[in-house]
Amino acid sequence: MSRERVLTDIRSRLAGDTKARHDAAVARIGARRRNTVPERASRAAEARVAQFEEMLARVKGTTARLARLSDVPAAVQQYLGEGARVCVDAEIDALALPWQDTRLTHVPWAPKTGFDCIVSGCVAGAAETGTIAISSGIDAPLSRAFLGESHIVVLPSARLFGGYEDIFDLVRQGDLPRHLTFVSGPSCTGDIEMIMEYGAHGPRALHVLIIDS
């Protein structure tokens, strides 16, 4: 059997006994030790929003700061323009925001349905690289975030962490999502002559609404 063959080939070349290696690996995994965390991933909460905005701007993502969640619909319309076809994910939909005050067209999600923009929540943000984490789940198809022309993410500032490790600690508290994605800017490719072009397969633009309260 291939499994035994591969493991036997590996074991025949390793020092020590199988049990000792097993114990070493289990102990190493169980420790969940943090390695060097860069200073930039460990800044105080008040410094993080500006850091997040600066880092995301470097990779062509944009941000806006909003005082309240209820400001989201107006900010979405301001960003997309009146009449834009938006798909709002379940998390944001459940907030019962004042969409009726805007002239946006709501489109239900289906993989083949075209829409201009997906408005979604997120798991958390990491200021170190202007990164937001989104995940799959019930009513939250991961693929949706990649099928719109643009992607607007709502990020409460309380969920903006310093570094990746903080996000891992958060997702470990419950069941790990099947698919967790760190998003750091819009989709791009440098595959033709090393020049970055945006909108390769995913969104051409990424806009993060940071909610202060």
Partner: peptide, 19 residues
């Protein structure tokens, strides 16, 4: 600083997952 997308995929779709 980081690639645009870094995905962490754990197992098949869960009960009730939309995709």
């Amino acid at each position: 600083e980081i690639s645009q997308y870094t995905s962490f995929i754990t197992g098949p779709a869960r009960e009730g997952d939309a995709d």
